[in-house]
Amino acid sequence: MLPYLGCIILFLIGIYAILTKRNLIKIAIGFCLLEYSVNLFFAFIGYKKDALAPIYANLSQARNFVDPIPQALVLTAIVIGLGTTALLLSVALRIYEKYKTFDIKEIKRLKE
């Protein structure tokens, strides 16, 4: 149960960062934390106690494998996360270039 609790704590920290921080980069970091917590959670799902790595060596051991699918999925999710984070950061940097600030409350030309 403990790892799941860790996930939830990480998740809450991420939400806290997104909701309260004013710096764009910090918001991005909070967003990364959220993503990690979800990925971690996904990875934990496949875990089984005392199980082997899912490599198809010989059939006699085939009974007690760790579920390999979540790992593959998490890898994909990480790639996607990489893409989003990169885009988020580069947009944040461009915003800094134009607005000369990282403060999210200053960046409000689009409203109403």
Binding site: R109, L110, K111, E112
Partner: peptide, 9 residues
């Protein structure tokens, strides 16, 4: 219209 305040938070 005022709901759309422009602030992400």
């Amino acid at each position: 219209r005022k709901i759309q305040s422009g602030i992400l938070s």
